Amino acid sequence: MSAAADFAQDRDTLHFRGDLSLARLGSLPDQLDRFDGRVSRVDLSAVSRIDTVGAWVVHRFAARHNAQVEGLDEDSQMLFDHVVGAEQPVAQAPARPNGLIRFVAEVGAAAVQAGRTMYGLLGFLGATTIAFLNVIRHPSRFRFNATVQRFEVVGVSALGIVGLMSFLIGMVIAQQGAVQLAQFGAEVFTINLVGRLTFREMGVLMTAIMIAGRSGSAFAAQLGTMKLTEEIDAMRTIGVSPVEALVLPRVLAAVLMMPLLAFYSCMIALIGGGVLVWLDQGIPPATYIQRIREVVPITDLYIPLIKAPVFGAIIAVAGCFQGMLVESDAEQVGNRTTAAVVQAIFMVIVIDAFFAVFFTWVGWV
Rank of each mutant, 00 (worst) to 15 (best):
G155E: 03
H65T: 15
V357H: 10
R60M: 09
H65N: 15
V135I: 15
S328Q: 11
R150A: 15
D10P: 06
L228D: 15
D36P: 07
L159I: 02
V135G: 02
I238R: 02
M206K: 03
P309F: 03
G334S: 04
G54W: 07
Y302P: 07
Q281K: 12
S241D: 15
G323S: 07
M165P: 05
L246F: 09
N98T: 05
Q31Y: 14
Q290G: 12
R196H: 00
R41Y: 06
L193D: 00
T198Q: 11
F346D: 08
A158L: 08
I283S: 09
V194P: 09
K227N: 12
R49Q: 12
K307G: 01
D6V: 09
E87V: 06
M226T: 09
W364Y: 12
I209L: 15
G160K: 01
Q9A: 12
A63H: 08
P139R: 14
M202C: 07
V162E: 00
V295G: 06
T13F: 07
S215D: 08
A93V: 02
T299D: 02
I351E: 00
V251L: 08
A245T: 12
L248A: 06
V326E: 08
K307R: 04
R143H: 10
I298C: 06
G54T: 11
L122R: 02
P309T: 03
E70L: 11
L22D: 14
H82I: 01
G203A: 15
Q343A: 14
I191L: 05
L248W: 14
M202Q: 05
C320V: 12
T128N: 13
L25T: 00
D300A: 11
R60Q: 15
H59G: 04
R137D: 12
A91E: 11
E244K: 11
F103K: 02
V107I: 15
D6T: 15
A218K: 04
W278S: 15
R196L: 15
R96P: 05
L197K: 01
E70R: 06
F80D: 02
L279Q: 04
F35E: 12
R60V: 14
G85F: 04
I315S: 03
I232T: 11
E244T: 07
D329K: 09
A245M: 09
I292K: 07
V179G: 04
L252Y: 07
V348K: 02
V154L: 02
V275Y: 06
W278Q: 06
R250S: 15
P97G: 11
K227F: 01
A253H: 05
T229N: 13
W56M: 13
A3T: 07
A313R: 01
F354P: 05
E294S: 14
A353C: 14
A95D: 07
I289T: 10
T360H: 07
N98P: 12
D81K: 05
V156A: 13
N192K: 08
I50A: 00
F144T: 13
I268E: 10
Q281P: 03
L14C: 09
V255I: 10
T129K: 00
L20D: 01
